[in-house]
């Protein structure tokens, strides 16, 4: 069974000489829900642009369900549905027309396209707007329009470039559910995001890209397990002793809140012992849910290091 997406040695140097991708290796299995994470300018959209033939690659290989984009571009294209980062529909065209045109470009018969358009517009809550020109939609509606458009030819792999950017929490959750359902129906999904929570909630596998290099590529569980430090937040009885508590990299947030870092090898009992010694009374505690964020900052730091090495080698 070929991978849904296989990328090797992918390089991109833009006109003007900017080296945006420096040898990307990526493999996404069929049926996966895959996150591509990275800071602004890391090269996520460039990578997606090359997969979807909107950007010319400088070097490397890309194949989609076993079809090399250099040799069998049209087959490769027919498997992919793309939800781009920026709105790219004709603002003056009515929603229904946009969907039917897109289906037409993929060779879908009009009668079939009409049925699909109705199905997806209803599922994505845009049916009432079907005859309105796209410019009259709100930002969140425009994102959903692009999702509906990407599904018109029933792709086997759906690639979403920051689908929930600028989307409110409630809508984001309903989009997540929609994407989960698609994935359960067997569609491979790749999404890029800046919301770590999103990747953690949805995705089974993850790659982190920074400065055009993949700095991590693993499954979500082992990634989270790699993080051996957890941060706890203690709510204490107000005390001046709080300021002098320095163990466990402690940080006093105010006169009754303390944050401490605990390694996996240490036990929380020891934290309590130390707090007792200082006469600090614990009212409540919780763990700070920033695990992925920390990890992210760690890994991205590493990426920058790698980058500097590349520069030095020249």
């Amino acid at each position: 069974m070929p991978s849904a997406l296989a990328i090797s040695g992918l390089e991109k140097t833009y006109k003007g000489g900017f080296h945006a991708l420096k040898g990307i290796e990526l493999n996404v299995e069929q049926g996966d829900f895959f996150a591509l994470l990275g800071p602004n300018g890391a090269g996520k959209s460039t990578t997606i642009g090359i997969i979807t033939s909107l950007v010319n690659k400088t070097a490397g290989k890309v194949s989609v369900f076993g079809h090399d984009i250099d040799l069998e571009l049209e087959q490769a294209k027919s498997f992919i549905g793309l939800v781009p980062q920026e709105f790219n529909f004709n603002q003056f065209e009515p929603i229904m027309k946009i969907l039917l045109n897109q289906a037409g470009y993929y060779g879908v018969e009009r009668s079939i396209a009409l049925g699909r358009a109705e199905k997806y517009l209803k599922q994505l809550d845009l049916w009432d707007k079907r005859n309105e020109p796209a410019r009259q939609l709100s930002g969140g509606m425009k994102r959903r329009l692009m999702i509906a458009r990407a599904l018109m030819h029933e792709p086997k792999i759906l690639i979403l470039d920051e689908p929930t950017a600028g989307v409110d929490i409630e809508l984001r959750r309903s989009m997540w559910n929609f994407l989960r359902e698609l994935n359960q129906q067997g569609i491979t999904i790749i999404l890029t995001t800046h919301y770590l929570e999103e990747a953690e909630m949805l995705c089974r596998n993850i790659a982190i890209i920074d400065s055009g290099i993949i700095v991590e590529n693993t499954d979500m569980k082992s990634l989270l397990a790699k993080l051996d430090i957890e941060t706890f937040v203690f709510d204490l009885k107000p005390s001046t002793a709080l300021q002098s508590f320095k163990q466990f990299n402690a940080r006093a947030v105010d006169d009754h809140t303390l944050e401490v870092d605990v390694k996996k090898s240490q036990t929380i009992n020891r934290v309590f012992d130390e707090l007792n010694k200082h006469g600090l009374d614990v009212l409540s505690m919780r763990n700070k849910s920033n695990r992925l964020e920390e990890l992210f900052v760690n890994l991205v730091g590493r990426g920058q290091l790698a980058d500097e090495n590349v520069v030095k080698e020249k």
Binding site: S53, K77, N88, N90, E93, N101, Y105
Partner: peptide
Amino acid sequence: FSAKWQRNVEEMLVAPVP
């Protein structure tokens, strides 16, 4: 040109349209 400008030309470029 307007399809380039609004980028909806991409709708055709991503599709398997010769």
